[in-house]
Design a protein around this nucleic acid. Structure first.
Length: 908
RNA sequence: GCCGAAGUGGCGGAACAGGGAGACGCGACGGUCUCAAAAACCGUUGGGCAUUACGCCCGUGUGGGUUCGAAUCCCACCUUCGGCACCA
């Protein structure tokens, strides 16, 4: 009798052994094909949660599969260690961010090791280490030289909670909230550092070298927001240039007014004295308004006339200049030509302020009548001088643009929604930006040889919201590298997304000090072959890192265009959803205003005839949303919640639960993203302690489609655990042979073995971990059936056994290793080759001929493989059930498909 | 409004390129073992009507269509989730 499967014993044992043997150390080996496998590194928040496990363990299985396939796989891990939580911990609890961060890293490193993943810890990077962030600073200086980093004053997004500016990408949704904390952002005018990502806008739209999921590409495309059109050189009446961007140059003759953004630099100049007061009031109001209000499409458009006029270069017409907040300073030139007849926004504005509307694209059948709304469809140009009669928009746009260029009054132009990446953060725990401000020399970069600019550790954290660097005298005051005079250091630090923009390269040689990475390592390992992570980074990290790689390429540091060739996005694990009990509570109000009720009797109603949620003078009824020993929180409908107080005298009545207490009531929980604040976290550590790592890994891969994720099911994990127990007993317990196996059975075992290799291999290629494990379970089930036969003494059995262990190795590495060694093989299963299948052996020997009559399955007849249509017909028509449906009917057609389906089409 | 993803049993999910819908697992029900329970093992399990065959009907969000044959292809629509949006 073999001993029991006790994962708590075998898992630590093997983890220790693998580590001692450096089993997963990835070393350059030009004789082997490399495979750089990367999964997004975590922020060291202090605890690994289920989301990390869900992201990392399937990646690990996939990486292990490639390793067994013979690739030289590098699978590194590290920590994205700069960021605000560390600083908040410092302010709240008086722990230094560095202490907090490194303590968390230690803890998480242990938790990560418990995954049994093949991470190569010799390559670990920690981004808050000066040996790492030195290179952030070095890149910054290179970017500065190349004109890819610059400083400007601009109205920027500011998060009042995080007390720092944010990049455009870090402001989420229509509510314009902070990506980190969900607080609505506000605008502030500040001098900030930017990376010129817009220089690569066009190239970033080229996804041809990437094998990335379409949704990510779509989001990046959306974000970059390219539109083609023309720039047209309007001027003010005084002669100041007033260029505008339009996508419809064919409507230029329909311009009846111009609109400037309230912040436009020419506003002051074009405003006439009599309009000044009104214009200034409008500008001030626009500035006060939040972006949410301002950009709301629901709002009626407002604006004021400046008194100034502009000249339309196509016909010399004088048109009034207005200002309106629906024109954004940040897009195009901050000014538009208004064509009310052919743009709905301009139309509404013109209607409201009584401005003229001139049709220049005649809709089909138009006879000069007034338009009800802007016409944006196809038509013929009218009232457009030399272009009358041209079909619009095509070829009108092209022809007009060519003409504008000939006339020198405009040109073809492309505009992007993408803005430059704001990297300044008014926080302490980040990479210091390596510049100083000298009274004489202005902005002076810190010389390369003085890097890194070390983040001082002896800082004081005050809950003022100001970075402690701003009052750290020693850090602040320095000398100018150019003139030697007094200078002040930049106190802003870099966005932490800078760190993660190039970490994939630092893994190559985390301690290399002659450059950001060792070029010899880079030559072999780069670029990343497979990257995995969440889609939420589509327009953040994934856009930034593409930009970085292109910039590094232009600096001559890498010789490829894209950082990660293949990308796969896993989904999100949600909390376990539950429906609450519906209860009717009798008792009395303690305070109806305070929604407090005292219960005399609580009845749970679990059938479908629940009453509606309601309250009355002596009862409340609704769904249980929370409970403890002395109270129940009820949703009584209409968004109202009542706290029902329970005491010893309260009668609790729950169907099928004798002597029930309040604690037996189940309460409602929506399926929400697992997070601590929602209180629905399943702690992986606890599950590992209970079931072992292999079970948790296998369950995460089996129960969900990886790209989709879904709600956790605490019962489901038992099934995978049972499977591992079954495999253990199957392979280690002495067989109790009861009878001889038939040849058929032995053949079927070989067939199943080879079919399983094929299925698992193909599923691995598609990240279909769930069906791969299902296939392994099927093989297990068949072997269970045959274990009481003499099949166990055959080669087919040994082959099946070894195959099962080898195929399990990527998913459940510990039990696989233990079984491998215990079945008499040499350590380590993780150094074995992936099994291959013999196609001939996967073929069934007999088929089931499916006979359909008019498309409905009427009979299933066992038949030999490769039977002819004639033979199939013979079998089918001889079958009594087929007879029943075809006799006496006209046979119209017979279709023989796939060699195993026969469809007989009969008449009535 | 534009773009993207997805709708299949009580649940998670299978179904290669148009050919047997529901693999695998959870849950449920019945049984074996046990003083009993748990575990383990065996069986049943889409719905309905029948249960005398294991027989018939219905069934992949809805409505049409193409086809000998549709979860799969086409058209229209509904629902859910996500991204973008006064972008000129």
């Amino acid at each position: 009798m073999a001993d029991k499967y006790i994962p708590q014993d075998i898992e630590p044992k093997w983890q220790k052994r693998w580590e001692e043997d450096k089993l997963y150390k990835a070393e350059k080996d030009p004789s082997k094909e490399k495979w750089y496998y990367l999964t997004m590194f975590p922020y060291p928040s202090g605890d690994l949660h289920m989301g990390h496990w869900y992201a990392m363990t399937p990646s690990d299985a996939h990486a292990r599969y490639f390793r067994m396939r013979g690739y030289n796989v590098m699978f590194p891990m590290g920590f994205d260690a700069f960021g605000l939580p560390a600083e908040n911990a410092a302010i709240k609890r008086g722990i230094h961010p560095k202490t907090w961060t490194y303590r968390n890293i230690d803890r998480m490193r242990k938790q990560l090791r418990s995954m049994g993943a093949m991470f190569d810890w010799d390559r670990e990077v920690v981004t808050c280490d000066p040996e790492y962030y030195k290179w952030n600073q070095w890149f910054f200086l290179k970017f500065l030289e190349k004109g890819l980093a610059y400083r400007k004053k601009a109205p920027v997004d500011w998060c009042p909670t995080c007390k720092t500016t944010l990049a455009r990408e870090q402001v989420i949704g229509e509510e314009r909230v902070c990506e980190r904390c969900g607080t609505p952002v506000i605008k502030r005018d500040l001098e900030q550092w930017f990376f010129k990502i817009t220089a690569y806008a066009e190239e970033l739209l080229d996804f041809s070298k990437l094998d990335w999921p379409e949704p990510v590409i779509a989001r990046q495309r959306n974000w970059i927001g390219r539109s083609e059109g023309a720039e047209v050189y309007f001027t003010t009446e005084q002669g100041d240039p007033l260029p505008i961007f339009t996508t419809r140059p064919d409507t230029l003759w329909g311009v009846t007014f111009m609109v400037l953004a309230p912040e436009h630099p020419l506003v002051e100049k074009v405003t006439t004295p009599d309009r000044k007061a009104e214009v200034e009031a409008y500008v001030a109001a626009a500035r006060r308004m939040s972006d949410i209000e301002r950009e709301s499409t629901e709002r009626e458009k407002t604006g004021v006339f400046t008194g100034g006029y502009a000249i339309n270069p196509v016909n010399g017409e004088r048109v009034p200049i207005w200002i309106a907040d629906y024109v954004l300073m940040t897009y195009g030139t901050g000014a538009i030509m208004a064509v009310p007849a052919h743009d709905q926004r301009d139309f509404e504005f013109a209607k409201k302020y009584g401005l003229p509307i001139r049709v220049v694209i005649a809709p089909p059948g138009w006879e000069g009548e007034e338009l009800e709304e802007a016409y944006t469809g196809e038509g013929i140009m009218v009232n457009s001088g030399p272009f009358d009669g041209t079909p619009a928009p095509d070829p009108a746009i092209r022809k007009v643009t060519e003409w504008l260029e000939e006339q020198g009054i405009g040109k073809f132009a492309v505009n992007y929604r993408l803005r430059d990446w704001l990297i300044s953060r008014q926080r302490y725990w980040g990479t210091p930006i390596p510049v100083v401000y000298c009274e004489k020399c202005g902005i002076v970069p810190v010389p390369e040889e003085d890097l890194p600019v070390i983040l001082p550790e002896d800082v004081e954290f005050k809950p003022t919201g100001v970075s402690p660097l701003t009052y750290h005298e020693e850090f602040l005051h320095t000398t100018c590298p150019k003139c030697g005079g007094p200078a002040l250091r930049e106190t802003d630090t870099m966005d932490t997304f800078v760190d993660s923009s190039w970490y994939q390269y630092r893994y190559l040689s985390p301690h290399y000090d002659e450059g950001p990475w060792d070029p010899q390592e880079a030559e072999y390992w780069l670029p990343v072959d497979q990257y995995t992570g969440g889609i939420e980074h589509a327009t953040l990290h994934l856009l930034y890192t593409r930009f970085f790689t292109k910039a590094l390429r232009d600096l001559g540091l890498v010789d490829f265009d894209e950082p990660m060739i293949r990308l796969y996005n896993q989904g999100i694990i949600l909390g376990e959803p539950r429906e609450g009990d519906f209860v009717v509570v009798e008792g009395e109000w303690e305070s109806e205003e305070a929604n407090a009720f005292h219960a005399v009797r609580i009845r749970a109603i679990r059938d479908k005839e629940k009453p509606d949620p309601a309250v009355g003078p002596d009862f409340v009824q609704g769904e249980v949303y929370a409970r403890d020993e002395v109270s129940v929180r009820l949703n009584v409908g209409g968004g109202r919640f009542v706290i029902v107080h329970v005491d010893e005298g309260t009668v609790i009545d729950i169907p099928d639960v004798p002597e029930a207490t309040v604690m037996d009531l189940i309460y409602h929980l929506d399926a929400e993203k697992m997070s601590k604040s929602k209180g629905n976290v399943v702690a992986p550590d606890e599950l590992v302690a209970k079931y072992g790592t292999d079970t948790v890994r296998a369950y995460l891969m089996f129960a969900f489609r990886w790209e989709q994720g879904g709600p956790w099911n605490s019962k489901g994990i038992e099934g995978t655990h049972r499977w591992l127990h079954r495999v253990w007993n199957l392979l280690l317990e002495e067989p109790q042979v009861k009878r001889e196996a038939t040849d058929q059975e032995i053949k079927s075992l070989r067939r199943k073995t080879h079919q399983t290799i094929k299925r698992v291999t193909q599923d691995m290629e598609e990240f279909a971990f769930n069906t791969a494990i299902a296939a392994l379970m099927e093989l297990t089930n068949l072997m269970m059936k045959l274990k009481e036969t003499s099949a166990v003494y055959t080669d087919a059995w040994t082959e099946a056994r070894d195959t099962l262990i080898l195929l399990m190795a990527p998913f459940t590495p510990h039990i696989a290793e233990e079984l491998w060694v215990r079945t008499g093989h040499e350590y380590s299963v993780h150094q074995q080759s992936w099994p291959t299948w013999d196609e001939a052996l996967t073929k069934e020997e007999e088929i089931t001929l499916v006979v359909q009559v008019n498309g409905k399955v009427r009979a299933k007849i066992p038949a030999p493989v490769g039977l002819s249509e004639e033979e199939a017909k013979e079998l089918a028509f001889a079958h009594p059930k087929v007879q029943k449906y075809v006799s006496g009917k006209e046979i119209r057609r017979v279709i023989f498909a796939q060699g195993r389906i026969l469809n007989i089409v009969v008449g009535k």
